[in-house]
Design a protein around this nucleic acid. Sequence first.
DNA 1: TATTGTTATACTCTATAACTATA
DNA 2: TATAGTTATAGAGTATAACAATA
Lengths: 155, 155
Amino acid sequence: MAADIQLQGVAEELQLAVGLLVRHMRMASAGSGVTLSQVSVLKRLDREGPATVTALARAEQIRPQSLNATVSSLRSAGYVEHTAHPTDGRRKVIALTEQGRRFVRERKEAGHGRLADLMADRLSPAERQALAEAVPLLRRLAEAPSPHVPGTWTE
Amino acid sequence: MAADIQLQGVAEELQLAVGLLVRHMRMASAGSGVTLSQVSVLKRLDREGPATVTALARAEQIRPQSLNATVSSLRSAGYVEHTAHPTDGRRKVIALTEQGRRFVRERKEAGHGRLADLMADRLSPAERQALAEAVPLLRRLAEAPSPHVPGTWTE
DNA sequence: TATTGTTATACTCTATAACTATA
DNA sequence: TATAGTTATAGAGTATAACAATA
């Protein structure tokens, strides 16, 4: 259960890197009209399809109230819309609008810049390979639920 | 200069992971009385020794004004103190107090929990090895200056 | 009663702008 | 004039608490 001493060091270094990387990412998306959290939601809706507020919040690992703030901005910007759930009157389904889909598509075509450029600039081919293998592991760690049940998607 | 198509995918996945991991980290440090940014500064002062506001801000990759807010909290909490720079009257040197050193030490002894535990729980030995090799690369990316010069430390 | 969503409020994190003091 | 630091202000991101509507 307790992590060994080696892992401690790796974890600490990872924590440092993540803290700095998120600042890079935030700065990079600063000029683009949407914020980091907003992009995260847009990309998720694009990848996984429409979802309820609760399901989205679980996937993003934040509270529904917090997600609501993000979704409100996206709604004002015209990127997402609410529609009624077919069978459950309490639920509302959030989906990308045509404009939202276009935004995600154009962003993808523009090349997702910053991080990819950094990797191209500062890593050797072998190092890029090593990173490519490790990233799915990071994702697995990231998607592990904190003390909660994993949310079922959309339903 | 432009990253190839393979890297794009890795970068995108990395971005997703980093966004979620930082939420994990924030939650993990929530109960401990200090926030994520505060911990980052405390650990840096412990690793690298006393520093001026400007140097610290550069290392943390935020503006001096932003750093000031963090340092103010740490000062109120008694973890750091300001002292005059020996030769330059404009500068102020920030250093850990005895209490700050104790805090960092105890935190280290307690085991830096969350991330290390996740790694122990959800990764095979081979996967841990792969991650351990990739983390220094992440750090290299993270420490690359955005459009700025790297700050010289303390002086 | 439990779940879904919402509104109100507050605190952290970071930025920009404008200022003072020192070099 | 340039640099180091500070204060004021604002917006993003998230949390808790309290509530309404529906199941």
